[in-house]
Design a protein around this nucleic acid. Sequence first.
DNA 1: TTGACATGCAACCATTTGGTTGCCTATCAT
DNA 2: ATGATAGGCAACCAAATGGTTGCATGTCAA
Lengths: 104, 104
Amino acid sequence: MDEVFKALADASRRSLLDRLHASNGQTLNELCEGLAMTRQAVTKHLAILEAASLVTTFRQGREKLHYLNPVPIHQIGERWIRKFERGRLTALSELKRRLEKRDA
Amino acid sequence: MDEVFKALADASRRSLLDRLHASNGQTLNELCEGLAMTRQAVTKHLAILEAASLVTTFRQGREKLHYLNPVPIHQIGERWIRKFERGRLTALSELKRRLEKRDA
DNA sequence: TTGACATGCAACCATTTGGTTGCCTATCAT
DNA sequence: ATGATAGGCAACCAAATGGTTGCATGTCAA
């Protein structure tokens, strides 16, 4: 889980995921096109995404195809984000709670 | 958006959000309790969370109260994660597409 | 007023991170 | 076979990150 969050923390990596979302199964060089980065930099980013299981790859001849794996993203939505979407007591009611605790 | 992702990338910060989710409106010292970190380290983390609008604070006398703001988390769920939850063409169909492109 | 408590500020440090360059290997097409 | 193409590996670098320690300030209570 931590690896996924860390992988998502970088804007370049998120944009790589966007690119794969737009067109899945691209090669390294395809993913490099138009990017202000070296191929090696992209390779590193993809390695991090792969380590987080956000991207799966396999080789086809001399090319390496990159596929988006949406499962970890989905899991973050399910297991983490949902938790914060309910049960939001308002700041005011919490302040009230706090003041009462203080006076006790 | 980037600030939010970066803020969420650290496990210590996520656990601070968890703590606030469990009990909103805590002081700095309360948030430090039981943590294997200096108070100053926690202060820095909270500053990052605050910069990302994930936490709101205000002072009450000599104490600083910390409140969770779930809005940015919600937005990431809405604007970013949802996008990847649909439209997942299978790897196989994409491979097919690729091979056809190759033969053309 | 004075000590204790809650927090803030700043300098410093080691490690990680995002990126580079240079070179090597493998595969395809001619 | 041989050149061009796709990718891999490793060393190196600057900047960011996560943490520390030491000291200063502000506020409360006796």
